[in-house]
Write a protein that binds this DNA or RNA. Structure first.
Lengths: 340, 340
DNA sequence: CTGTTAGCGCCTTCAT
DNA sequence: ATGAAGGCGCTAACAG
């Protein structure tokens, strides 16, 4: 397998082409001031040896950067975040940069470790979906000239570029729609209120209720579901409540999917009829939402575009000479869409 | 934002701690032969300056590696591959390695570019879901001592470790189940036959048919759908065929989801009744399959485990001193599971 | 147009 | 137990 374990260096290419290392270097970086026929010979040597410039060696030289962007995401397996990652990758690739991807599993300590590692690898910048509320590691990154862009969630007290969704507005519109459909008893399934999006979406939910003279009944509010299975369990509890809701607002796709799974299971078991189940609104669109057995609307947005926007903010700082520009906070609009 | 654009080096830490750079280096790599109180001072200086070892500089020294694994995937946004990536990330993180992620969009040229870039960044190894059948770039990587593990798909003529699924067996069992359910007219929706999985799954499909004396009707076979939308279109064509199938075998989640979307749309439009639609078997499980309006079974497997297994093969070669061990080809079993 | 020198940040080797 | 020298691969800066 490794007939030739060592990778060739400029020096070997130079020897083979009968020139000095500098001529190889010059040829590889555009060929300014190198005779065409010499360039030709160099390129042949490069091809024959299968030479690739050592980017790590290049990056330690003054003025050069690694061309790496560190991306810390809470859960790559969630389609929302993987689509986000796609957007980042695409936009980064446009400038020849690569992404260093790390999964935090919603664990703040792991995120801090990751960021430290990223800094050690001399990333040009960081794109983070923060797992917690602590910002020391990110402020530290900034203080060393490595800009940080927050995505989806902001952190109080950290002055960093950010791209988030119109969480409050979306939740407000979704909840209002349910009220307009005649519902007065609306349940809530969401992620923890301690999470940026959790807090904002819940706030939008509550605001819509109170604007219509409705109050929140804690019996039909569940805010600690991080996974689909947890969401299923929480849904079961809502449905079994003394006064079950006639509609449920789900603060993200995990919770909406869990709700649909539970409803569908109970429907198949025949324990209740379809019309006995609550109508659903989901913050986040998701695949196959249209198969829902109950009426459903989604608060739609484009995670890929969110990834792109976050990356553009970062690149603008890096390449646009705006390292010290004022912090920019973007809030992407969302739209309510009836699915079924 | 960048009060201190330059990142500290060993030298600065050394000065601050009142020692030589070597003492800092030694302290950071375990502290062998450094007096405890000196270590203490060094660590304080490290903390005060927020120093991180420059991994790129370390990696150019003989004997050192980058600790990076290059991962080239055809489509990160596909939940199947993002879950795969999660498995890779987790397993790599266990050895302190990071992943460099690139999306190929099923484009062989882009894959070759990516691999070249990865080699330039001195990755320790490569995990690739190959987009095509050309192997020159991968063989090249191997020849420079950078091992390659293929995931999900193999490439003919390339001797590389690989982890794939039991495509033929799975397709055969899924199709056989449909036949046992009484179907004799079974359609096929899949990705291109030129793709490893496409070919193998189609082969299993055909084998099951012929074992039961059935023949393939090209009118109800569509094998070029790469996206959900394409799959929807293909499904419509199957349903509109002169003799539509009573069951459809879908070779991956994109095709199954497209089929369900089309069926569901027609059902809602009222143009056909539920019992008029074909039963479905899907190679790949996917979220909310249980909401299918028609009976459905899935050929189930665990993409996360596939990612882990691929990474273990790679790490075993890298850390297990098995750089030149014989090629290992793993085929993970799949299971047929009735969903609805 | 081409080559030589020197140094990026780090750590192995060899003193002390 | 600590430090000095040297070199990993690369390329600005300075000859020529």
């Amino acid at each position: 397998m490794s007939e030739r374990a060592r990778r060739p260096t400029v020096k070997e290419v130079a020897t083979r082409a009968g020139v000095s290392p500098m001529t190889v270097s010059r040829t590889l970086s555009g060929g300014l001031n190198v005779k065409p026929d010499v360039q030709q010979r160099v390129m042949e040597a490069v091809a024959e040896l299968g030479y690739h410039r050592n980017e790590n060696a290049r990056s330690i030289r003054p003025g050069h950067s690694s061309g790496l962007i560190g991306v810390a995401i809470t859960n790559i397996a969630n389609p929302y975040y993987s689509t986000f990652a796609l957007g980042v990758e695409e936009e980064a690739a446009l400038t020849g940069r690569r992404i260093l991807l790390g999964n935090t599993s919603e664990d703040a300590a792991r995120e801090a470790d990751l960021v430290g590692d990223f800094l050690g690898r001399r990333v040009d910048g960081l794109i983070v979906v923060p797992a917690g509320t602590s910002s020391a590691h990110l402020a530290h990154s900034q203080s060393q000239g490595v800009p940080v862009v927050l995505a989806s969630r902001r952190i109080e007290g950290l002055a960093a570029d950010s791209v988030v969704l119109a969480d409050d507005d979306g939740a407000h519109r979704g909840t209002s729609a349910l009220i307009e459909h005649g519902h007065t008893r609306i349940g809530y399934l969401g992620n923890a209120l301690s999470i940026f999006t959790g807090e904002r979406r819940y706030a939008g939910f509550v605001r819509a209720l109170s604007e219509h003279g409705l109050t929140v009944d804690p019996d039909i509010v569940a805010t600690n579901q991080q996974t689909v299975d947890q969401a299923r369990d929480a849904t079961r509890a809502l449905l079994d409540a003394a006064h079950p809701p006639t509609a449920i607002f789900c603060a993200n796709n995990r919770n909406a999917i869990g709700a649909l799974k539970e409803i569908s299971a109970q429907l198949n078991a025949g324990s209740r009829r379809a019309t006995d189940f609550p109508e659903i609104v989901s913050f986040d669109d998701f695949e196959l939402a249209e198969l829902s057995p109950v009426p459903i609307s989604v608060i739609d947005h484009d995670p890929r575009e969110l990834g792109r926007a976050a990356t553009r903010l970062l690149l603008d700082r890096l390449d646009g000479g705006k390292l010290d520009a004022a912090t920019r906070e973007i809030e992407l609009p969302v739209s309510l869409r009836g699915v079924r």
